[in-house]
Amino acid sequence: MKLWLFLVEGNSDKIYVDKIIKYYVKSEKLKKEIKLEWIILDGKYNYDKKEKQIKQKINKFKNQNKNSDYEIIYVIDLDKFKREEKDRIF
C-alpha cells in the first residue's frame, strides 16, 4: 500500500483533484495499492501551519502499513502565477 497525501489550498481543489485521480487511476488500484488522503491548507502558503497534521497522517499510515511508502503531493493554483512574484518563487 502506498499513501498519496495531497496538500490542497481549499476544499474545491480537493474535489477537482479527487475526480481527476479517480478518472486516471483504476479504482481497483486505488482500493488495493494506493490510499488517498487530503489536508486542506486554507491557502497555498500554509504548509507550516499544517505540519503537525501532516506528520500525524503519515505516522498513522506507517503504523498501520508496515514497510509502506508515501508521497506528499502539493497542489497549488497557478491563477496568479504571472502577476504575483511570490507565486512564481513558490
Rank of each mutant, 00 (worst) to 15 (best):
K22R: 15
K49Y: 04
K62T: 07
K52A: 13
Q56I: 11
K2I: 00
Y74M: 10
Q56C: 04
E37Q: 13
K26P: 04
L41S: 07
D48I: 04
K55E: 13
I58N: 09
E37M: 05
V25I: 15
F81W: 13
E28H: 05
I73K: 14
N63Y: 05
E37D: 15
I58Y: 04
G10E: 09
Y45I: 06
I15N: 08
E85W: 12
I34G: 05
D42T: 06
E71V: 11
L41E: 03
L7N: 05
N46L: 02
L5Y: 00
S68A: 13
K14A: 09
R88N: 09
L41R: 03
K60M: 09
L36F: 01
F81S: 13
K52P: 05
K60E: 12
I89F: 08
K14L: 03
L36P: 01
K49G: 09
L5S: 00
K55I: 15
I73T: 09
Q53N: 12
F61S: 02
S68T: 09
G10R: 06
L5G: 00
W38S: 01
E33Y: 09
E85Y: 13
K49C: 03
L30D: 02
Y74L: 11
L3S: 01
N65M: 07
Y47V: 14
F6P: 00
V17F: 04
D87C: 10
E84S: 15
I39H: 07
R83P: 01
L36A: 04
K35W: 02
I39W: 05
L3N: 01
N67W: 09
D13Y: 02
I89N: 11
Y16G: 04
Q53I: 07
G10V: 00
K82R: 12
L5C: 00
D42N: 13
D13G: 06
D42L: 12
D18N: 13
K80T: 13
M1E: 02
K29D: 08
K66S: 15
K19S: 11
E28I: 07
D13R: 02
K32Q: 10
L78N: 14
I89H: 10
Q53R: 11
E33S: 12
I40S: 05
K86I: 14
E85S: 14
I73H: 07
L30K: 03
N11E: 12
Y47I: 14
K52L: 06
K62I: 05
V75T: 08
V25C: 09
Q53E: 15
E28T: 08
I72L: 10
Y47T: 08
K19L: 07
V75Y: 10
K19H: 06
L7V: 03
E51H: 06
E9M: 01
E28P: 01
K55V: 11
L78G: 15
Y24H: 12
K60Q: 14
S68N: 15
I34Y: 06
K19R: 15
K26W: 03
